[in-house]
């Protein structure tokens, strides 16, 4: 028996919109800890890891660990039927082949339920090692989104470099080149607008902008984004989900032969 009641249902809507273009089908793993998901895109270049902790739900009942295979496009179709202010409850039975989404309007005058078919998904679970990153950049999520969008009109790849000067985003294309440097900017009264750069050593990595632009679909989930870089690891782009958990996108770098 599974019953998860999320008062801020819009969070689930946003989460699915943020990952559905990257991942087609995924297993949602439900345990006492919370609802989690780990999935790669079809070309295995990017990986998304989601955690919604049990404490973030108003009611959380998960009698035993359960893995539910869902088509994210179908899930999106159903969740789009929920209002932004609706409370969403996810209900399932052990061993059942469907899941039910119940939507309640804030004043309880409209209650809907949508039953969705589950699917069997053969997915590999990858071990993500704890890592010491060379540099961690925290910046406004809207700024990061703007940079990725702007640069993708000029080039296909971006070099992200962190030095003492700041974080630099560089691209090159047929029409020319572009460099955007963001310096550390600790705005005390507006911490969400701060850019904070922690650097253990300088690092420079190349990534496909197409994927970074896809990750920025999570922008509305969090005012800030954290970019963790190490020269020998995929970059981690993390959006925290208020009081509940996170979406982390891992992107494998482009490497010289």
């Amino acid at each position: 028996m599974l019953e998860l009641r999320l008062v801020q249902g819009s969070l689930l809507k946003k989460v699915i919109e943020a990952i559905k273009d990257l991942v087609t089908d995924a297993n949602f793993d439900c345990s006492a800890t919370g609802l989690s998901l780990q999935a790669m895109d079809s070309s295995h270049v990017a990986l998304v890891a989601l955690l919604l902790r049990s404490e973030g739900f108003e009611h959380y009942r998960c009698d035993r660990n359960i893995s539910m295979g869902m088509n994210l496009n179908n899930m999106s179709k159903m969740l789009k039927c929920a209002g932004n202010d609706d409370i969403i409850t996810i209900k399932g039975d052990d061993g059942g082949d469907t899941i039910t989404f119940m939507f309640e309007s804030p004043n309880q005058d409209k209650i809907s339920d949508f039953e969705m078919k589950l699917m069997d998904i053969d997915s590999e679970h990858l071990g993500i090692p704890e890592a010491e990153y060379h540099a961690i950049v925290k910046m406004p999520s809207s700024e990061f989104s703007r940079i990725c969008k702007d640069l993708s009109s000029i080039g296909d790849t971006v070099v992200i470099s962190v030095t003492k000067e700041g974080v630099k985003f560089t691209t090159r294309g047929d029409i020319g080149t572009a460099n955007i440097v963001c310096r550390q900017n600790k705005t005390i009264d507006k911490p969400d607008e701060a850019t904070i750069i922690e650097m253990n050593e300088p690092v420079s990595l190349t990534f496909a902008l197409r994927y970074l632009n896809s990750f920025t679909k999570a922008t509305s989930l969090s005012e800030s984004v954290t970019i963790s870089l190490s020269s020998d690891l995929p970059v981690v782009i993390e959006y925290k989900i208020a009081d509940m958990g996170y979406i982390r996108f891992y992107l494998a770098p482009k490497i010289e032969d």
Binding site: A46, L47, P234, A252
Partner: peptide, 14 residues
């Protein structure tokens, strides 16, 4: 130019 690597080059199956 640089070649795209994959996640599985860095993270192993559990």
């Amino acid at each position: 130019g640089p070649k795209q690597s994959t996640i599985t080059k860095f993270f192993g199956k559990v």
